[in-house]
Every structure is written in structure tokens, then in C-alpha cells.
């Protein structure tokens, strides 16, 4: 990882951040193993340069970005966001990146573009979890995620290329990943090679695997439990060992309701979970 130039997130410096060594050693990135500590171990030789990210589909100016474009095309800014995992742990991470909206404006979506489909690199030679079902947790690869176009255009939605002031470590989704802070962590797809504007709602990876447990929207919602556990509260991963008192209430939209609740006006969030 190398240092990045960016403007600091002045508004959120007061949030207590999860220590860097925990952010980079506790990862759900099944392409490198389904255990939390495996990606930090198995992703170290992952090659991120050269890289190609293609933005295509229902748009007027499809483009392909190279590795250098990812950090130079837009001015980078720090965004200190809460991250809530569907497994009920949470973190506070200082991401570095740019708004997905800026990128999408560049390709000019046309009137058929209703959804955005994201895809992670498929390379079983480099990603042992894709080659071995036991290691990869039995999910289908490549990993795909999706957003509604208006969710993708929301200013909070971030394309992240770094954290804690440096480029992303491979286990956190280098060289570029999505961060959608009001949705469960699995929406924030890692190591993206393709962003496609589409007219139909895509079937996302976890939704395909267990549709009664994971929906397309996956908004953080303390009032809609996972069928097998409660989502009412969460454990914030902070410094301190076994005895840190870190259980806290989970907030609707992970506390970003002011910015995003209007996107779901009139929708039954228990039906569209």
C-alpha cells in the first residue's frame, strides 16, 4: 500500500475509528477464504496493477479505466463511515475515494439505465476461494452486486481506493471497491472489474444463495431481523480485548436516514429487505 493525496473528512473526525490493524485483518472476502483472518493471509500476492475497470451498458460513453486512472481521474476525499455487517459486527473506517455519481456522470447513462450491476474479478488462479468450494464458502463466483440507479447516484455512495490514508490492502478489496454505508457490508463489493448500467434489477450473489435471508436492497434495518438472528443491535469492533463494552443499538439505514430515507418513500421495507 502507498500513501494517497486526499482532502480530510473534517465533519466526522470525532467518530471513534476501528484500529487500522483490525480493519485490515478482519475481512469477509470469500475469494480469499471464508474465515475472517484468511483474506489478510491469502491475498498478499494478489496483483492489482495492471487492472482494468470497464463501465459499460446503457450509457452514451462507455469507458475502461486503468490502474493509474483509479487514483488520478478524480480528486480523492476521505469519508469516515460506519460499516455494519449483516453478521451483527460493525466498524468505523476512514475510506479514501470518490463519489460513484461522478464516475457515472462521465459515461452518461441513457434513459434505459435503471440499475447498476457490479462484478468482482474472476481469477481462480489468484483467488483460491474461487478455485476451492470449501475455502470459498460455497458461493457462486464471480461475486455480483447491484444498486438502483438513484442509490448509485446518492452522494454517500463511494468508490473507494484506499483507507487510513493509503491505497487499499488486497484483503479490503484493492484496487477499487464500492462502499454503501447505509447497507449491510456485503453490498460493498470488492476488487471490481465491471460496472454495467442495466434496465432490469440484477440478481445479486447473496440473494441467489438464500433469497429468504438476503434481499436486493439489504438496507441496515434494526426492525427487520435476519431469519436466524436479531438485527436490533451490533458489536462495534474497537480497540480493547474481550471486555470492551461495545454493544450498541443499530440505527435505521445505519444512521444515514437523513441522507437516504427519501429513496425508499412509500416502500414496505419488510418486504423489500
Amino acid at each position: 500500500t502507498t500513501p494517497l493525496k486526499f482532502t480530510a473528512d473534517k465533519a466526522n473526525q470525532a467518530l471513534i475509528k476501528t484500529p487500522e490493524n483490525k480493519v485490515i485483518s478482519h475481512n469477509n472476502f470469500y475469494e480469499f477464504g471464508a474465515q475472517k483472518e484468511q483474506p489478510a493471509e491469502l491475498a498478499q500476492n494478489f496483483k492489482v496493477d495492471p487492472w482494468q475497470l470497464t463501465i459499460s451498458g446503457e450509457c452514451d460513453h462507455p469507458i475502461t479505466l486503468d490502474y493509474d486512472d483509479l487514483t488520478t481521474m478524480f480528486a480523492l476525499e476521505e469519508r469516515i463511515y460506519r460499516l455494519r455487517c449483516v453478521e451483527t459486527w460493525s466498524m468505523v473506517v476512514p475510506w479514501i475515494g470518490f463519489s460513484l455519481a461522478d464516475l457515472l456522470k462521465k459515461v452518461a447513462p441513457n434513459s434505459s439505465a435503471k440499475y447498476v450491476l457490479f462484478e468482482t474479478l474472476y481469477d481462480p488462479k489468484q483467488m483460491p476461494g474461487q478455485a476451492d468450494r470449501r475455502l470459498g464458502g460455497g458461493i457462486n463466483y464471480p461475486y455480483v452486486e447491484g444498486l438502483r440507479l438513484d442509490e448509485a447516484m446518492n452522494p454517500l455512495t463511494l468508490m473507494s481506493v484506499g483507507l487510513y490514508g493509503k491505497t487499499l490492502p488486497p484483503q479490503n478489496g484493492a484496487p477499487i471497491r464500492l462502499v454503501v454505508p447505509w447497507k449491510y457490508g456485503f453490498k460493498s463489493i470488492k476488487s471490481i472489474v465491471s460496472i454495467k448500467l442495466v434496465s432490469e434489477q440484477p440478481k445479486t450473489t447473496w440473494q441467489q444463495l438464500a433469497p429468504n435471508e438476503y434481499g436486493f436492497y439489504a438496507n441496515v434495518n434494526p426492525n427487520h431481523d435476519h431469519p436466524r438472528w436479531s438485527q436490533a443491535s451490533e458489536r462495534r469492533i474497537t480497540s480493547g480485548g474481550l471486555f470492551s463494552r461495545n454493544r450498541t443499538e443499530t440505527l435505521p439505514f445505519n444512521g444515514y436516514g437523513e441522507e437516504v430515507a427519501h429513496l425508499y418513500k412509500g416502500m414496505d421495507l419488510n418486504k423489500y429487505y
Partner: peptide, 18 residues
């Protein structure tokens, strides 16, 4: 196990680990 968890050397989430 409990010694490492207590001094916060049992991975990022010692609670899950124990």
C-alpha cells in the same frame, strides 16, 4: 485462548473467536 483474548491479541474480533 483467554489470555490472548484478554490482551487483545486474538484477532480483530476476540469475542467471536472465544
Amino acid at each position: 485462548l483467554y489470555y490472548l483474548a484478554f490482551i487483545d491479541q486474538l484477532g480483530a474480533d476476540p469475542v467471536q473467536r472465544v
